[in-house]
Simulated assay, not measured.
Amino acid sequence: MKNVVITGSTRGIGYGLAVEFLKKGCKVMISGRDQSKVDLLVSHLGEQFGKDKVVGLACEVSSAPALTALWQGAAAAFGQVDIWINNAGISIDRQPLHLQPAADLQRIVDTNLTAVLLANSIVLSGMLAQGSGQIWNMEGFGSNDATQPGMAAYGATKRAVTYLNKALQKEVKGTAVQVNTLSPGIVVTDLLLSDYDLKSEQWKKARKIFNILGDKVETVTPWLVEKILATDGSGAKVAWLTGGKAFRRFLTAGFNKRDLFADLPSAS
């Protein structure tokens, strides 16, 4: 099976993807900022799936040397890297741009855009040298031109990733390296919840939409991994929440009462 590296895989969607790849017999490199947390998860997953199946290394994704070390570590452990998923990302407080601190704006650009540029550069070089490989860059709110107040910075970084994918797909044409897009839709994670004051009116309105369009990690990630492993070609897009699916969910929302946040007392 495939050898997989996932940035930002100590929690949320990244961790869910890691587990599902391991279930499929793949080897996985876990990565996050905290080496102690990485080590803990590697030990836990190694007990479940085999110590030869999972390795881990802390990585600050906005650092080119750290990303290079992550690539080299995975290549040394696995022999080669077949799939690299740029999943790591952050959000900042949802508020008008002029109220967002400069440090937060710098941080979100560093993590959601600069890090993706650096990772693609390093991984493309490695995959071209080894003769094959797939890169999957993660979409998010703003990738399809959607806009909302308070989301200018986050949406701008994700819109830039859409451009990057299209440009890189032209650059790798004629090679055995593939650049593809992963779109998980609205998934209930700490990242999603961190955007809101869970006692606010804004959250009450958002919660209604999320309960229609959203899903939990364990629902989305098995499907995403199945589609990734079935993809052979550059320019592919694996999208969980399509326009058609969203339309059907709104049509049936009155009959399908979902509460994805029932186990979160602070979200009630």
Rank of each mutant, 00 (worst) to 15 (best):
I13W: 00
I13K: 00
Y15F: 08
L17R: 02
E20S: 05
E20N: 13
L22F: 12
L22S: 07
G25E: 15
K27N: 10
V28M: 01
M29A: 09
S31G: 08
R33P: 14
D34R: 05
D34Q: 07
K37I: 07
V38I: 08
V42A: 02
S43Q: 15
H44P: 13
L45N: 11
G46R: 05
G46W: 12
G50K: 06
G50M: 06
D52V: 05
K53Q: 13
V54Y: 00
V61G: 04
S63Q: 09
P65I: 01
A69K: 13
W71E: 05
G73R: 08
A76N: 12
G79K: 01
I83H: 05
I83F: 01
N86E: 10
G89P: 14
Q95F: 04
Q95N: 06
L99Y: 14
L99I: 10
Q100I: 14
D104I: 10
R107K: 14
D110Y: 11
V123L: 05
V123Q: 04
L124V: 10
S125W: 10
G126L: 05
M127E: 06
M127P: 01
A129P: 14
A129M: 12
Q130N: 13
G133H: 01
Q134I: 06
M138L: 14
M138A: 04
G140C: 04
G142T: 08
D145L: 10
T147I: 10
G155C: 05
